[in-house]
Every structure is written in C-alpha cells, then in structure tokens.
Simulated scan of single mutants.
Amino acid sequence: MSTIDVNNLLSQMRQMTAQVRPAEIAPKLAPIGAETLGKPSDFSSILKQSISAVGRTQMEAGRMAASFERGDPGADLGRTMIAVQKADLSLRTVVEVRNKLVDAYKDIMNMPV
C-alpha cells in the first residue's frame, strides 16, 4: 500500500502549472497551508484549475500546430514543438495524478473497518 503526500503532490502540480503558463495560471493558485488541507473544496479547485490549464495548453498547442501546417508567416517550428511537448507532458502528468488518486481510493476502500 502506498501513501500519498498531499503537500508534495500539490507542490508538484503547482510547479508544473507554473511551467506551462507562468503568467496566466500561477498567480491564481492560492497558497495551501495547514489550515486549508482539511477542506476538500480547496483541493478540488486546485485540481480543476490544473485540468483546465492542461486543456488550455492542449488547445494552444493545437492552434499553433494548425497555424504552422497552414504556413502562416508568424508560425515558428521551435515554439510549436515546445508547445506540443508541454501539452503532452501536462496531459501525462494529469493522467498519472488521476491514477494515483484512483489507487489511493482503492486502497482506502479495501481497508478493513
């Protein structure tokens, strides 16, 4: 049975979100302290923000890829490839977070009462 360190998980999510969109997302995330750990709404809001950031990252990468494919004059291959890689990394991270949460839920449900 594995244990999940919530503070470490949230810290990693914040770091990844800040790397994806530093100016847009990072200021919106409220700092999590000991007084807010017990509130499920805070974790769920952070999770929702992270998932929406992944969606925006994927949409931006798709827009940049389509722009490059059309041959638009402002399209840059390097920036497009970086955006696509960021979108892929952020999606894989969200999937792994989901997998860890599902595993934790299964472990809790299998605990004897």
Rank of each mutant, 00 (worst) to 15 (best):
M59S: 13
E60Y: 05
L101G: 08
M59A: 08
A18C: 14
L89S: 13
P27C: 01
A87D: 00
S67G: 09
N99W: 11
M16P: 05
N110F: 04
M81P: 01
R56A: 12
A65T: 14
G33Q: 01
L29Q: 05
F68W: 06
G38T: 04
R98I: 01
M111G: 15
S45C: 07
I25R: 07
P31Q: 14
M59R: 14
L89Y: 00
I25A: 00
G74H: 13
L9V: 07
L9F: 05
V84Y: 01
M81N: 05
I108G: 02
Q49P: 06
T80C: 01
V97K: 01
V20A: 04
G71K: 05
L101D: 12
K48H: 05
P22H: 09
D103H: 06
A66S: 15
Q12H: 14
D103F: 09
R14A: 10
V84C: 04
N99V: 05
V95F: 15
L91V: 08
A34D: 10
T93I: 06
K86N: 10
K39T: 11
V97P: 03
V6A: 08
V97C: 07
G55F: 11
Q85I: 04
D103Y: 09
M111P: 00
A104D: 02
M109H: 14
F68A: 06
I51P: 01
T57I: 04
L9S: 02
S41Q: 15
I51T: 08
S44L: 13
A18I: 01
R21P: 02
A30E: 11
I46N: 05
D72V: 04
Q15C: 01
G71D: 00
K100N: 05
N110L: 12
S67E: 13
D5V: 00
S50Q: 10
Q15F: 15
M64C: 04
I4C: 04
V95S: 10
L9N: 04
D5K: 00
A66L: 15
G78H: 15
I108W: 10
F43M: 06
D103M: 12
L91Y: 03
P27W: 07
M16E: 02
L89G: 11
I51G: 09
A61F: 00
A26E: 00
A18R: 00
D5G: 05
A75H: 05
L77R: 13
V94S: 00
P112M: 15
G78Q: 09
M64P: 03
L10P: 00
T57S: 06
S50H: 09
M59H: 02
V113K: 14
F68R: 08
I108N: 11
V6R: 09
T93S: 09
R70M: 14
E69P: 00
V95H: 08
K39G: 12
P112D: 14
S11C: 09
V95Y: 14
V94K: 02
D72Q: 12
D103E: 15
L89R: 12
G33D: 03
R14G: 03
I51A: 15
N8K: 12
G78L: 08
I82G: 03
R56L: 12
S45V: 12
S45L: 05
V84A: 04
G78N: 13
A65K: 13
Q85Y: 01
N8A: 15
S50M: 05
